[in-house]
């Protein structure tokens, strides 16, 4: 048995460690990763003063978007823009890429072509609610209020969404409609100009649909905008439709 000569090893470890630190710095220094190009492009756009000419400044716009899944072209050359007060409805049969387009707009999915310019913060309500099985609606709202650093009274939000009765019931015992209401309740936690909604009416009863319409109307009257993928009739007057 001989004692290991650990000195060269230690030096090698230190060198290796510093190399990795340097490499990560270098990656930061060379600039935007291709994946983040759209985001960086958005950041580089000159900030447009909101009050001057709201019509000239889309809150969110996209140009030349194209997407491939596997080897299949989902869509190509999609251009869109929403300005303050506008609501854009995405239409198309199942599997045409409405959800994918929304995810691209939200920055969750990287498009194969084109770019997205996000000038304002957005809310995301996808078709999966983001509610944990053991989480109650009250806990859910408290968590996201904490994560986003807002001070909204969650009680009033719960009341508004008609969630007072199941407010302390764990997610796994909630009905699909109650879970959807909980997800939509996040929209009221913080005022964000752009709402990205994927099938907001899913699983909701008549009263719930009316509630969604009322929320959207209020949001638009405050100068916000909505992009929503909707099957069937929209309960609000869309300012534009995009069919994929």
């Amino acid at each position: 048995m001989r004692a290991p000569n650990t000195e060269p090893g230690r030096t090698a470890l230190i060198c290796w460690g510093s190399l990795i630190v340097l490499a990560s710095r270098a990656q930061l220094a060379v600039g935007p990763h291709p994946r983040n190009k759209a985001a960086f492009a958005a950041a580089a756009e000159p900030a447009i003063p909101e009050m001057m000419d709201p019509q000239a400044a889309p809150l969110l716009s996209a140009s030349g978007l194209g997407m491939i899944r596997g080897e299949r072209v989902l869509f190509r050359e999609v251009n869109l823009a929403v300005r303050t007060g506008e609501a854009l409805v995405l239409r198309g049969a199942n599997g045409t890429g409405k959800t994918t387009l929304l995810r691209i707009l939200a920055g969750l999915t990287r498009p194969e072509a084109g770019r997205v310019a996000r000038r304002e913060a957005h809310h995301w309500v996808g078709h999966r609610e983001g509610l944990k099985p053991q989480e109650t609606p009250r806990e859910h709202l408290k968590l996201w209020a904490q994560a986003w650093g807002t001070n909204v009274a969650t009680d009033s939000v719960l009341t508004r969404m008609g969630l007072n009765r199941p407010a302390d019931v764990a997610g796994r015992y909630l009905s699909a409609g109650q879970r959807r209401r909980t997800a939509l309740a996040r929209l009221l936690l913080e005022d964000r100009p752009v709402w990205l909604l994927d099938e907001p009416y899913t699983a909701l009863d008549a009263e719930g649909r009316a509630l969604v319409d009322a929320l959207i109307a209020e949001h638009r009257s405050r100068g916000g905008s909505v992009i929503a993928a909707i099957h069937g009739e929209a309960g609000f007057a869309a300012s534009g439709e995009l069919t994929l």
Binding site: W124, G126, R128, G130, L131, K132, W148
Partner: peptide
């Protein structure tokens, strides 16, 4: 895996 399935992952990726 649970986060990816229930949509929480989407929210964390956009949490800022």
């Amino acid at each position: 895996q649970a986060d990816a399935e229930d949509g929480t992952l989407d929210l964390w990726l956009q949490a800022g």
